[in-house]
């Protein structure tokens, strides 16, 4: 079977962002960028399916600026076979991303599409589900385990109350949760090999997708900062303060 994985270039998860002084957005100049952690998990799962002989081709797609090729190369170093970049300098929203991915799905006809459950910048948690509808596919979001069978895939999902297992008809969409797997590190020979793997570059216009958004970001502000409080010397003092000062117990 064919597996398509969508990966996004985002700010490195260790970095605490700063809001620009004109409140137009967050300052991304010279900050370290990386593959969204949930997307790494998606790539890892696809590569494991290939290693198990379940998948025979893993294609990775990203939508973003030219430099997003770095994340596609990283995915190929982890084991993906080829890459597609839909190049755009516009910051696109989930719906536009899902529409573009739906076009890629139409061309590639994958049996399984794996995405991260959310990107750590926008924290939207939407793209996979939107793609599901647009491509007419079933979905297993927040997956912590997947088992591919004949014409179907069983997905265990992390939900608020615990775990839920669904059976999805193929083709299907899966979005990854943190505990699906632990991504490997790329080895140097594989990084070198990835440089020779095919990477196709397209534009949104090639797919005839309208990427105009119905949303406008008016303002981006810093949240109210919490300031550090006091250190207490003992458990007794802590209990006393919680009772009499904070009055929360």
């Amino acid at each position: 079977m064919k597996v398509l994985v969508a990966v996004k270039r985002v700010i490195d998860y260790n970095i605490k962002v700063r809001v620009k002084s004109d409140q137009s957005g967050v300052d991304l100049t010279n900050v370290k960028m990386a593959m969204n952690p949930f997307c790494e998990i998606a790539v890892e799962e696809a590569v494991r399916l290939k290693e198990k002989g379940v998948a025979d081709e893993v294609i990775v797609v990203s939508i973003g600026p030219k430099v997003a090729q770095e994340q596609i190369r990283t995915a190929m170093a982890l084991g993906a076979d080829r890459g597609i970049l839909v190049e755009t300098d516009e910051p696109l929203e989930s719906l536009a991303i899902a529409k573009l991915l739906a076009k890629v799905v139409e061309v590639e006809q994958p049996d399984l599409v794996i995405l991260g459950k959310q990107s750590i910048d926008a924290d939207n948690n939407q793209t996979g589900q939107m793609l599901g509808t647009l491509a007419g596919m079933s979905q297993g979001t927040f997956a912590s385990e997947i088992n591919v069978g004949e014409n179907c895939v069983e997905v265990t999902r992390e939900i608020d109350g615990g775990l839920q297992t669904l059976s999805l008809n193929l083709p299907a969409i899966i979005t990854t949760d943190l505990r699906l797997n632990e991504p490997r590190y790329a080895s140097l020979p594989n990084i070198m090999k990835a440089k020779r793997k095919p990477l196709d570059v397209k534009t949104p216009a090639d797919f005839g997708v309208n990427v105009i958004s119905g949303l406008k970001t008016l303002l981006v502000e810093s949240p109210q900062e919490r300031s550090a409080g006091v250190l207490v010397g003992s458990v007794g003092e802590l209990v006393e303060k919680l009772k009499n000062e904070a009055k929360v117990i």
Binding site: S94, N124, Q126, G128, Q139
Partner: peptide, 21 residues
């Protein structure tokens, strides 16, 4: 909730509108 996050983007995409998360 995990439930709302699961089905709402499908609603938005079918209506061809953005979702505000």
């Amino acid at each position: 909730t995990t439930n709302g996050k699961n089905f709402m983007p499908r609603v938005a995409a079918t209506l061809d509108v953005s979702q505000i998360s």
